[in-house]
Amino acid sequence: MIDPKFIGRKYSPMTYEVCKEKIKEYARAVGDLNPLYLDEEQAKSSQYGRIIAPPLFAAIYAREVLENWVLDSELSLNLPMIVHGEQEFEFFKVVKAGDVIATEGRIAEIYEKKGLNFISLETISINQQGEVVTRAVWRMVIRR
């Protein structure tokens, strides 16, 4: 069992500069060919004025905090046994190419259910204007 004393443990903000080429790479990798993510001309004439990131690009700009969490030596999570159990996203603002996103994390839950260990991280991502763009909960299950 992961010690519940770690609930509330914080992971300091990590910043990520959103690059249009990375957005294109991501969109192609997931097979989502929406021109707003890929076509600069069309994106320019859209309400957003430039290439925007798909909502789940949150997985990219939050990545460093998630890594700091999963690899936190004090938690000593059994890495090969970790699987993604649940995921929640709340989107407040569209993320655009050129944005600088800072994401911080906090351990929201640690519990045991049916003999399995669960641990979740809540992340908040903020853009360069100080606006919250995304809130997410990443819930992992430790298999046995």
Partner: peptide, 17 residues
């Protein structure tokens, strides 16, 4: 989003794997 038409319209998404 293919249905909504605008990525900015999606406000929440949750799943259990």
């Amino acid at each position: 989003i293919d249905w909504l038409g605008d990525p900015g319209r999606l406000k929440k998404l949750k799943v259990r794997f």
